[in-house]
């Protein structure tokens, strides 16, 4: 516990400059970040999620998400043996404060499903925006231009996953940005940073060394509602057929 040593380290010019660069700047000004070199997505591992709600709280802290609205949330499924397609689902306050204790059931199975914007490559929400206020960036992230959005909520209606909402005080559409302000500076998203079990992994499909490529070869990975043909890039490992 040597505070002066830490202070000294922070003041080492190289570290300080690097951190200043992390705190401010735009991707186009950053020499290291090229829009064309990335294609972002997210891997969500249902077999690892413990429903602690860390991701939901971290997202709220990082992105100033208003109470009662969610850029990410966690659902708890109970799929009984009697009906494999109609599960019982809860998500109290988006799972922000965790879940009530579940008792073992003989004829059913519990599991958690973290949800977020799927950053679809063929996104229905950007398709319907009348003015081009929501769009897919060249690096594959669906963003909202808060200074341009009319707040018509057409995109909210068009999203099959319920990921969008109208911000109660800004009156514009809002949703997950895949922590675009972080990933363009070499950091991971707030939810991935704070997931204690590694159930969420930021994925860059254009990076040949990204572990996702090996993971996809050996795991049973699906996207939500594939019949919607949205080109979803939230990849789920261990996704049960009852998840909607």
């Amino acid at each position: 516990m040597n505070l002066s040593r830490r202070q000294f380290l922070v003041l080492v010019p190289a570290t300080a400059v690097a951190w200043q660069y992390v705190l401010a700047g735009t991707p186009r000004d950053a020499p290291n970040y090229q829009l064309a070199d990335h294609w972002w997505g997210m891997l969500l591992d249902i077999t690892k999620c413990i429903g602690c709600g860390n991701c939901v709280r971290a997202c709220q802290a990082e992105n100033d998400v208003p109470d009662g609205y969610f850029r990410t949330w966690v659902e708890r499924y109970l799929r009984t043996d009697w009906n494999l397609t109609t599960p019982e689902v809860i998500s109290p306050d988006g799972g922000k404060e965790g879940f009530p204790t579940a008792e073992e059931v003989k004829d059913g199975m519990y599991f958690f499903v973290p949800k977020m914007c799927n950053h679809c490559a063929d996104s229905p929400c950007t398709q319907v925006c009348p003015v081009g206020a929501t769009f897919i960036t060249p690096d594959g992230v669906v963003l909202i231009d808060q200074t341009y959005c009319l707040g018509c909520a057409y995109c909210v209606q068009a999203c099959p996953y319920g990921c969008r909402y109208i911000h109660p005080t800004r009156h514009v559409a809002d949703k997950c940005t895949l922590c675009y302000h972080r990933i363009t500076k070499g950091l991971t998203t707030a939810c991935c940073e704070n997931c204690p079990t590694g159930a969420r992994q930021l994925v860059d499909l254009k990076n040949p060394n990204d572990p996702i490529h090996a993971f996809l070869k050996t795991h049973d990975v699906h996207v939500l509602k594939p019949e919607m043909a949205t080109g979803a890039k939230a990849f789920y490992n261990g996704l049960d057929g009852s998840v909607r």
Partner: peptide, 25 residues
């Protein structure tokens, strides 16, 4: 600039403040 949207919005989104410093920091 990049498509049917305001290109500067990409930079503006990227410039939002960071709250979690990250493990390596």
């Amino acid at each position: 600039e990049y498509g049917h949207y305001r290109g500067a919005a990409i930079g503006e989104t990227a410039a939002r403040p960071i709250h979690f410093a990250g493990q390596s920091a």
